[in-house]
Design a protein around this nucleic acid. Structure first.
Lengths: 123, 123
DNA sequence: TTTAGAATTAGAATTATTCTAAAATCATTT
DNA sequence: AAATGATTTTAGAATAATTCTAATTCTAAA
């Protein structure tokens, strides 16, 4: 691993949030102020292709990066907030219903997050 | 509905495939050769915001559009092919496990499609 | 040290998408 | 049918996101 790979890997896997390349860029800059965007792209893609980080795509939102460890996501369509959640039994259910092997699955549940629900009440 | 909205809606909802804006553009052009890309973007976004079509985002693939009718997707990470599939019991399982209401969910199952599996065997 | 290979940089190039203002179209009222 | 105002479409510029390329720097082995 090169220093940037290592740093970017560390940032993605230790962050509580789900970071965009823009945000990762901001973080890497704190330690290596001269880094350029191309390096962030190079390295997140490398990490992603190597299966070391996970990329999360949601319609009309920038891609975000996450640790690999298996979990699902709640997505608030109002504010874009992602929340980790672990749902049981999905893989078993898929295995039962699909007549074939699968590699992985990706489950997003859309809901209005508490903050947005609160805001709505205020209006 | 304007003529383009109508045409684009028809194209998305009657296609067997899951079309990109590029492909929708190609289709609309058959009937209205002078149409420009901006019109496609305007109208798919309008349809999407109105909840009349669904947008599908998969990492490292262009967004695609689909009919609204509820179903899940198999995704082949090799070739990008999307296949419709209807999986039962997911919503119930979510309702049981989440302590809160949700709006919708989005489930993608990654698998190597028959064509790609075949290709692999040939090598 | 020198050198070969990999990593990083800078910036250009490409692609995707949005924005803006003008032109065209449409529906409605006169 | 002509005039009006509202909406839609167009063209092209502007912006944003991402990739590419070639030059430079770094690293580690000979």
């Amino acid at each position: 691993m090169t220093k940037y790979e290592e740093e970017i890997y560390r940032i993605i896997t230790t962050s509580k949030d789900h970071l965009t390349v823009e945000q990762i860029y901001g973080e890497v800059k704190k330690k290596y102020p001269k880094v350029v965007m191309a390096t962030i792209y190079n390295n997140v893609n490398k990490l992603w292709r190597a299966g070391l980080v996970r990329k999360i795509s949601v319609e009309n939102m920038p891609d975000r990066y996450d640790r690999i460890i298996k979990h699902d996501h709640l997505v608030c369509p109002r504010c874009g907030r992602l929340t980790d959640v672990s749902l049981d039994g999905i893989a078993d259910s898929l295995r039962g219903q699909l007549g074939q092997e699968f590699l992985a699955y990706d489950l997003k549940v859309f809901y209005i997050c508490p903050e947005c629900r609160e805001q709505e009440r205020e209006q």
